[in-house]
């Protein structure tokens, strides 16, 4: 298994405040990597640096083999991104959203058409194909947003709290989609608040006050911290925090 994300001593400071403090880790191809932390622990900032949205103050990192500092444009081509805010175009139809993002990522018209048809069948969306996105229920929208983020088959997809505000059943379905994506070779980098979701990840890192305090598979973490579940692991680590959540 080769390495898709490699981060060494990455630091981001805003004035006196160190949002991300000297973190290092690696993510292997095809892995589901859970990026956990309380609000304000610095996980969104770290993720933004990996996506080329934010310039690191110190340290280096590569995503899909490209340097996040020197080759952000190449990084952008090889990743997908789904933000915590639902963000598709509401006044475009379902297929128009797919076509637009396909176009932005440089897919050919033929490719876009084939993949759209295939996706509509797989998601059972054929009837909604011509509907405006704003008329869809939230669960649908979230599935669609995820499908859009991996539509161009990126090497890595970054999911920033993708399941916020959805019921447990929809969340369960959403994770099935994530598993399908990894099966097709896409690496998943996901942040979440839900500790039950942490159990679905292959490996989990837990950030406290800008630093990575723990990084291992859920089962090893539970052993190390002598905990019943990931929630307890998280509680033990988060207690060390001196930083106020925002």
């Amino acid at each position: 298994m080769d390495t898709v994300i490699k981060v060494e001593n990455l630091t981001k400071r805003f004035g006196d405040f160190t949002a991300v403090d000297n973190i290092s880790f690696e993510v292997k191809r095809g892995e589901i990597f859970g990026f956990l932390g309380a609000n304000g622990a610095g996980k969104t900032t770290a993720m933004r640096m990996l996506c080329g949205l934010s310039i690191p103050t110190e340290g280096k990192g590569t995503v899909a083999g490209y340097d996040i500092f020197r080759q952000p444009e190449l990084v952008k081509k090889s990743i997908g991104y789904m933000s915590q805010k639902f963000s598709l175009y509401e006044d475009l139809k379902v297929w128009e959203n797919l076509e637009l993002f396909g176009g932005i990522y440089g897919m050919s018209d033929k490719d876009i058409k084939i993949k759209t048809d295939e996706l509509m069948v797989r998601l059972n969306f054929e009837e909604e194909r011509d509907h405006l996105v704003k008329s869809l229920p939230l669960g649908f929208k979230q599935k669609l947003a995820f499908s859009v983020s991996i539509f161009h088959h990126p090497q890595v997809v970054f999911l920033d709290e993708p399941t916020g505000g959805v019921d447990p059943i929809t969340r369960r379905r959403f994770w099935e989609m994530i598993y399908d994506a990894t099966a097709s070779g896409i690496t998943v980098f996901v942040t979440t608040h839900y500790m039950d979701e942490a159990e679905y990840c292959d490996r989990v890192s837990i950030m406290v006050d800008g630093r990575i305090e723990a990084l291992d598979s859920p089962s090893n973490l539970k052993k190390t911290y002598i905990a019943k579940n990931m929630d307890e692991v998280f509680q033990q680590l988060a207690r060390k925090s001196t930083r106020k959540a925002d």
């Binding site: 949205l53 991104y81 805010k85 639902f86």
Partner: peptide, 13 residues
């Protein structure tokens, strides 16, 4: 406001 700008910034657009 809609958050779509973020998606565009992450994209190679």
């Amino acid at each position: 406001e809609m958050g779509t700008m973020e998606i565009l910034l992450v994209s190679p657009m």
